[in-house]
């Protein structure tokens, strides 16, 4: 290693900085591509994300839309926000407070046929907790949703 001894501290510092800045840039690039965005139905219908991209969809479960398929573990339902409706399919243990007319956030991806495939459902799981995104729906959306579900 032919580094002049008196430069060692600088060289080490430079290498460490390059690696760390490189890691930072990589992270920034990966975050742009891998962060999962939150949509409400009207947004996802207007501008659907790429089919393999992980996203989250939040809205109200439409009254009368929930049905269980023959295997007993797959459910299909419609999530709506008053403007648009998105069909959703989910296989798994259904959260106990998941009912028609209540809010839900589905994690998953948009299928090519316009059906949202959910890997995970976040429902209100007690009276104090609602998914964060649901708290922040615009007032107009919330009012419409309330009017719809009554």
């Amino acid at each position: 290693m032919a580094i002049k001894a008196k430069h060692q501290r600088l060289v080490l510092l430079a290498i460490a900085l390059i690696v760390l800045i490189g890691a930072g840039l990589l992270a920034a690039w990966a975050l742009r591509n891998q962060a999962s965005y939150f949509y409400v139905p009207s947004e996802i219908v207007a501008d659907p994300p790429a089919p393999d991209r992980a996203v989250r969809l939040g809205g109200m479960v439409e009254q009368g839309s929930l049905r269980t398929e023959a295997d007993g573990v797959t459910i299909a339902f419609v999530v709506q926000d008053g403007d648009a409706r998105v069909p959703v399919r989910f296989s798994g243990i259904i959260p106990s407070l998941f009912v028609e007319g209540s809010g839900v956030v589905a994690e998953g991806r948009m299928g090519r046929n316009g059906v949202f495939i959910a890997d995970n459902l976040l429902a209100k799981h007690d009276e104090n907790y609602i998914p964060r995104e649901m708290q922040e729906m615009t007032t107009a959306q919330a009012e419409r949703v309330v009017a719809e579900t009554r």
Partner: peptide
């Protein structure tokens, strides 16, 4: 923008 970051990152 509302995003979450998970295992894919």
């Amino acid at each position: 923008a509302k995003v979450s970051v998970g295992p894919p990152y």
